[in-house]
Design a protein around this nucleic acid. Structure first.
Lengths: 197, 197, 197, 197
DNA sequence: ATATAACCGAGACGGTACGTCCAGTCTTTGA
DNA sequence: TCAAAGACTGGACGTACCGTCTCGGTTATAT
């Protein structure tokens, strides 16, 4: 009893799908997110525009999918677990800070975030496909810390992560200040203090 | 010996400036931020397109200015100060949460944030013109708490605010969850615990 | 030893053929000749596009066939023969003029003529399938007049018909003037005078 | 008190107008009328598509105008006048027949006629701009014949011309037969007989 | 009686062109 | 002497169809 409103995915050309996502990825890195047009993607992919419009609802969705395709297979990720929660988290946060300071990495991520802000469906997909696996890995590290007695067993792990990343995210997005290693350390220390028994 | 490259502001028509900003504001609320075009603003304001291009560098800048014009005069704001910091902050956070849940308010703010993300100059103006006065009011309340011995005297007030608002901001922007009053309270409690001596 | 390049007509689905021609006819009268697309015909007929492309070489051919199907069975037509050639021809010409003034009739015939102009094959078919039987009926009336001594026995009947209908056709196609009953009469009188002994 | 709905022609770019008409003419002769697209004209002319849409209502109108531009200045034409009407007309008709048999000339004229058939406005312009001057020259020759006593003074000259050209036009458009010199002569002889006293 | 070939509905595909919108620049004109 | 009005080139939009191409699912002979 399928709704069957959208076209039959069985007939979809895998070759075209791949070409489109590859073209989208290339174009984003070549001319920047804002200047990538459906027309350019279609031309680069050797595909009719209709083939894009048939399977994606918007430019944002295509490009988002091209990001997704990149991170596929990154499933079984895990955070370092040396037994020292604070040290491990600082390592991760410092790495993240470094990553976000790299201009080549920064531009598309900013664009992606701008898109997500205005498009609830994209936001949903972002959480489901991109954020969920990463968040689960983080929660797993926190659970390990709980088992080790380094964190109270009854805290809300998602809230913990929001405290850890929220300030970071805000500062980065609004360019409210530099993402220094010391800043990364502060976030970890303060968050731990907030949640420690 | 000024560089004097940009047009002489003295010659600027105040009537046109006002009409443009008013038109921009109206159009944003009528058709949504993303669909407002320079052309439409010019037509609505009864102004030549050139007059817009002469004074603003981008569509984002015009619309941002039209937001600014709204909040002018909101200078001398102050947060409630009953002597109970936690209660006062919770009041403010709950009000903010309610405000951000109002769709009429939400849409343009989301659009503004999306624009800020990708445009450093806009971000700079945002901090300087919009965020600064509000942040100063918040800091003033915290200083009052420090004087009352409710907060250690040596903490970084900006970091405190980042902890208070960062999680909130992230959750709202990415639609990571509902902004309930309880959530608002949690943010206050946890932030206070992180910074309390 | 037939060439047998084209598909075997024996396997052709009569049901589809009829549905296509019916759909074409309906669409022409609904949206006008120029706006009828193969895709629309196929959809309306509940038929795959390929089925149309298999049996007809062009859009014009399909629609032309749908016209043909209408006039099938109009074989044994005959012109009135009261013995008075001029009167009979005037009757016919006036009727034709009235017919061509009817907008419902006019539009598709104009479109058909436009198509014929640019497509020699369609022109051939037009003469063979549509014009021939009608012309033969007209010639028969003229032969009857020859037998009655109202027309010289050696005149070129086709040329006679060209004189009778040529001015009419030109005036109608190029909208060079109104097709009044008096005009119809003039054509008959002048043509008769040109060919009378 | 002008209606002033359409754009002010005073602001029209003469350079663009010329480039568009030239491009249209070139493309018609290069790829044939049917395959000339607005897009191609714009590209060839180095002009935005909007500039074409601003000043012409349809593709047909542009191309028609490009024909018009060709025949501008062909105002003061005159038919031969040796004193022998029949001979002069035969000369003209034979020349016309030869002209219409030339494929290079034929194709665009066919296309033009097809367009005129379906577009009343184009038909109106055709009569006013293209046919009128030529017809006037023909009528002038006939009036000369009337003064010379070779034609009755009270005949309808337009009707005369319809008889002369109608059969010709019909035969050519529908490919009803060859346009031989003998055929041309017959048209002249029969028309003269029809209208002679 | 069954394979096997063609036809069939369906519709995805690479493309071309449509007619519209808007960006950002350039030109004319009226106050 | 401005600035409004708006025409200009150019690029992209999202849509409509083109004609070709599979895809399974019937027929309908031709073994």
């Amino acid at each position: 009893m399928p709704a069957a409103k959208s076209p039959d995915p069985a007939r979809r050309s895998e070759r075209s799908r791949r070409a489109i996502l590859a073209a989208a990825r290339e174009l984003v890195s070549e001319v920047g997110y804002a200047k990538v047009s459906i027309e350019a993607i279609a031309a680069r992919a050797g595909v009719g525009k209709q083939t894009i419009y048939r399977w994606w609802p918007s430019r944002g969705a295509v490009i988002f999918d091209s990001f997704l395709a990149l991170s596929e297979g990154a499933e079984g990720m895990a955070l370092p677990d040396t037994g020292d929660l604070a040290a491990d988290l600082k390592l991760v946060m410092r790495a993240t800070a470094a990553e976000f300071a790299d201009p080549a990495f920064e531009a598309p991520i900013r664009a992606l975030n701008a898109e997500i802000i205005n498009d609830p469906e994209l936001a949903r997909q972002y959480h489901e496909k991109l954020a969920a696996p990463v968040d689960e890995a983080k929660r797993e590290r926190l659970r390990s810390a709980q088992r080790a007695g380094q964190l109270p067993p009854d805290i809300d792990l998602d809230l913990f992560l929001e405290f850890l990343y929220g300030p970071f995210y805000q500062r980065w997005l609004t360019r409210g200040g530099p993402l220094t290693p010391e800043y990364a350390d502060s976030l970890v220390d303060l968050t731990l203090r907030a949640f420690r028994a």
